[in-house]
């Protein structure tokens, strides 16, 4: 939203800030930045340090003393973690494509007030905002569908988000209808209009929604804990919880190779797992960041 970017520089009537005020503001900004960046810095640094450096530091490493990729080498050669990365990547890619497809089609299908069954369908989507069916009926449903221990159980129950559909729908409804009408007169069907006109005009919001879905799938661990009894199938987020948060050793041998005789992983390895969980968000993030405001605000206003 371009209106948000204030014109740079100070207005003529604006008084120059006092030195103390500017120092205070600058100091606050530095503190805010450090609160986010410092933990990431020490975690990254520790994951890149040798066990000798970690031992000398007595924990997290604050000052770099030689860089080594041993920890990363070890987690990628360890079947538990590397398999978990594969699972998370697969679930994220497949789930995001599926969710995005269903949501875009559904949002477009709901984007024309007055169309056949428009109201009841929209209403049933909006109901998802106000009432959550509950943990236990959902669990029993997934179990009775035979989806336990199936990767589909990580995708299907959380595949559509009412919020994302409403955001996409609001965006589609803002596209000038003359554009769609002229395509219709030229003989284009609804699918072609969606693919050729609506989607190219909605790249930004679609990218943001895709990011939301992808982050959701990548970060999800609770569904996996509920539905996957076999720890060899676990995604990265759940492995992270066991290794790092609960400081447990994963059951040895479940993934074919015994992992370090159930010894708890060293700090550097733990921190390497944390970094692997963070990195995908860091990579995609800069490309999508400038569109956030649009996505969030439209969803908020039209919601």
């Amino acid at each position: 939203m371009s209106a948000i970017a204030r014109k740079p520089g100070r207005a003529p009537w604006e008084e120059p800030g006092s030195l103390a005020g500017r120092l205070g503001k600058g100091g606050t900004i530095v503190v805010v930045l450090l609160l986010v960046l410092f933990p990431l810095y020490t975690i990254l640094l520790t994951s890149l340090s040798s066990s000798k450096t970690v031992n000398e530091a007595g924990g997290l490493v604050l000052v770099p003393d030689g860089i080594t990729f041993d920890a990363y080498r070890q987690i990628f050669s360890d079947t538990v973690v590397s398999h978990a990365i594969l699972v998370s990547t697969g679930v994220t890619v497949v789930g995001t494509a599926f969710s995005l497809g269903v949501s875009v089609l559904g949002a477009y299908g709901l984007s024309r007030p007055g169309s056949f069954l428009h109201r009841p369908l929209l209403f049933s989507v909006l109901l998802m905002f106000v009432f959550f069916p509950g943990l236990i009926p959902t669990y029993l449903l997934v179990a009775s569908l035979g989806l336990k221990n199936d990767y589909l159980s990580l995708i299907l129950p959380s595949a559509v988000s009412a919020f994302n559909i409403v955001v996409l729908r609001a965006f589609f409804m803002n596209i000038p209808h003359e554009l769609l009408d002229s395509a219709r007169i030229d003989g284009a069907g609804e699918f072609r209009i969606l693919w050729r006109i609506v989607l190219p005009l909605s790249k930004a919001v679609t990218a943001v929604i895709a990011l939301f879905y992808a982050v959701g799938y990548w970060n999800a661990w609770f569904n996996a804990m509920l539905y996957l009894d076999d720890s060899a199938k676990w995604p990265l987020a759940l492995v992270l919880r066991e290794y790092v948060v609960n400081a447990a050793a994963l059951p040895a041998g479940t993934a074919g190779v015994a992992y370090g005789q159930a010894a708890p992983p060293t700090l550097a390895i733990k921190m390497a797992i944390v970094m692997v969980a963070v990195v995908p968000a860091l990579i995609i993030y800069p490309f999508v960041q400038r569109h956030f405001t649009k996505g969030v605000i439209i969803g908020a206003i039209k919601g």
Binding site: G101, V102, G106, G109, V160, G189, E190, L194
Partner: peptide, 10 residues
């Protein structure tokens, strides 16, 4: 066609 599109979501 709109209903067909909305079907998977429904």
């Amino acid at each position: 066609p709109l209903l067909v599109m909305a079907a998977p979501m429904v």
